[in-house]
């Protein structure tokens, strides 16, 4: 635990609720992320982790509750008001969300060209450097996303998310679909972003090894709420049956999978 909590946390969610039709997905989420902290959110499939990220980015509007970024309430800002807030973020989407009409380097350079107004030649060099950081060489720069493997697409998306060196980084399952060695390279990259660039990171993962490696703090989401949050080292004696079942990957326990045996 950091002994002195900074006055305004980077991101603060309180009682955030979001439902799709009659289906409540987020049910009063409370989560605080300090400046320069790396928080990992874990939780079962379909528990609303991606929805939570999209609510913070303003891509989805929460039904109720408050979301503050650097102390600014974003939950009811207009689209125009959200623009300066969104400029602080870099987001890795779970499925990559690469622009399929643009080449790989144009994807990575997109935020630099459109957002920062960099000349194309300069942005291309920056893009190739970012691609190198995720283990992709210059050959792929001129390919199109459809010509890449799933894991390569994920890494291009990661390079795009960090290319503008944003203050806040969101990673939605950064290591899913990667081989164990590349997964560790990505873990290191995320740690570098937080440590060297001073970014604040919020990651989602199912990969406990990755979570232990990149997280300062871990939070567990279950039934639309954060049921446990604490320092990474404390997760092994969290004393919470839900967390216990999840980190040990046991089918038996309080989390019931909706399945029927054949």
């Amino acid at each position: 635990m950091t002994p002195t909590e900074p006055a305004t946390p980077k991101i603060e969610l309180s009682s955030v609720c979001k439902a799709f039709g009659s289906k409540a997905v987020l049910n009063g989420v409370d989560l605080t992320i300090g400046r320069g902290e790396s928080v990992v959110v874990i939780g079962g499939s379909g528990t609303g982790k991606s929805v939570m990220l999209k609510c913070i980015l303003g891509l989805l509007r929460p039904d109720s509750g408050s979301i503050r970024v650097d102390g600014v309430e974003t939950a009811n800002l207009s689209e125009r008001g959200l623009e300066p807030i969104r400029a602080k973020f870099g987001m890795l989407f779970q499925d990559g969300a690469l622009f399929d009409s643009l080449s790989v380097w144009e994807n990575v350079a997109f935020g630099l060209i459109q957002g920062r107004g960099l000349p194309r030649a300069e942005a291309r060099d920056a893009a190739i450097a970012n691609l190198a950081a995720v283990g992709l060489d210059g050959d792929v720069a001129n390919l199109y996303p459809a010509e890449l493997s799933g894991g390569m697409q994920k890494r291009v998306a990661l390079a795009r998310a960090i290319a503008t060196r944003p203050e806040i980084l969101f990673f939605d399952e950064p290591t899913t679909g990667l081989d164990p060695i590349m997964a560790d390279v990505i873990n290191e990259l995320i740690i570098d972003c937080v440590r060297d660039l001073g970014a604040t990171a919020l990651s989602i993962t199912h990969d406990m090894a990755s979570a232990r490696k990149i997280a300062d703090r871990i939070a567990m989401i279950y039934q639309g709420q954060i049921v446990w949050a604490g320092p990474t080292a404390a997760i092994d004696h969290a004393d919470n049956p839900v967390v216990d079942q999840f980190i040990h990957g046991r089918a038996q326990g309080p989390i019931k999978m909706q399945i029927r045996r054949l």
């Binding site: 989407f93 499925d95 690469l98 997109f110 957002g115």
Partner: peptide
């Protein structure tokens, strides 16, 4: 495919 969301997060 969330490319429109991605545009939004890239200040566009």
């Amino acid at each position: 495919t969330e490319q429109i969301d991605a545009l939004t997060t890239l200040s566009t």
